[in-house]
């Protein structure tokens, strides 16, 4: 079962597509309302401005794609949403980000809880140098899950969700770094899902993978739709077009990233309001 992709307007038909898919983890969220709203976000690395005045809403249960040329600040934008920017030296964020009535930029916020609710997948798969099982178990234990039976159940469930269970069920205790690239990336997704996040940020999750593995991950992301809110950065315009409900286009102007246009995916690709967007999605620039 797969989300049918020939919906003319994915959002108006969201109600139906959300219930599809054999996914077991994650709650249903069939109500496309803004889950994250970003207002006037600016992001600086030291004296360099990477992003300026970005405002957009991320809708619950939808897949939002961010497209744009290299260096326009897409990764930086994702990092701001789960406060991973705290880890980057010299990075300074201003503006407002609200997540579920929570002020993300609040310095007193417990970022660990925030990051549990907003998971992140990186461009290069980052399996920890542990066994497959320990990769998923470690964050679970860190978040206070102690009972082994419970942990094993979660491990199996999330591995099934990412379609990895059959491939690795006999080698749960072998090193995760021995898996293939595509398997590693799915393991990373499983690891994030195990924490039951509300949002998944994906930074070019397919770009380090071959077309087959990339297709598998893409199918997986589609199945997340409706259960999780997904923000995905991709350089693959066709992929964005295939899977996203909403799309945002970022562009470098005066060496600073700006959001040029944001809207429903179909509108961005078929009837862009902005000339820059039109030339980018038609492959004329960028």
């Amino acid at each position: 079962m797969k989300v049918s992709m020939d919906d003319t307007d994915k959002n108006s038909e969201a109600q139906q597509s959300y219930t599809l898919g054999p996914l077991q983890s994650g709650p249903h969220c069939c109500d496309p309302r803004p889950l994250i709203s970003v207002t006037d976000l600016s992001l600086h690395y030291g004296a360099k401005t990477a992003l300026e005045n970005v405002s957009l809403d991320i809708y619950q249960g939808c897949i939002t794609a961010l497209i744009g040329p290299s260096g326009c600040g897409k990764t930086s934008f994702l990092s701001a949403l789960n406060r991973l920017t705290d880890m980057l030296p010299g990075c300074h964020v201003s503006g407002r980000i609200r997540f579920n009535d929570l002020d993300v930029c609040d310095p007193d916020l417990d970022v660990r809880l925030l990051r549990r609710d907003i998971g992140m997948i990186f461009q290069k798969p980052v399996p920890f140098p542990l066994s497959v099982r320990r990769n998923i178990e470690l964050p679970l234990r860190e978040h206070g899950m102690r009972r082994q039976a419970e942990i094993d159940a979660v491990v199996q469930q999330v591995l099934q969700d990412v379609g990895l269970w059959d491939e690795v069920k006999d080698r749960l205790n072998s090193p995760a770094q021995a898996l293939s690239g595509g398997q590693q990336q799915r393991l990373c997704i499983a690891r994030a899902l195990a924490l039951q996040p509300k949002v998944l940020l994906m930074d070019e999750p397919c770009s380090a993978l071959d077309p087959i593995a990339s297709g598998v991950v893409e199918d997986l992301i589609l199945r997340l739709q409706g259960r999780y809110t997904v923000v995905i950065v991709t350089h693959n315009l066709a992929q964005a077009r295939r899977i996203a409900n909403y799309a945002g286009f970022l562009w470098m102007r005066e060496r600073t990233g700006r959001l040029i246009e944001f809207g429903q995916c179909r509108q961005i690709f078929e009837a862009p309001a902005h000339a820059l967007t039109a030339s980018y999605v038609n492959g004329e620039r960028g």
């Binding site: 417990d110 660990r112 809880l113 860190e142 978040h143 206070g144 899950m145 102690r146 009972r147 419970e150 979660v154 039951q196």
Partner: peptide
């Protein structure tokens, strides 16, 4: 699923 929230906060500390 039981998450011990207290644990998380204290870990952060």
């Amino acid at each position: 699923m039981i998450w011990s929230w207290h644990n998380i906060l204290s870990l952060s500390r």
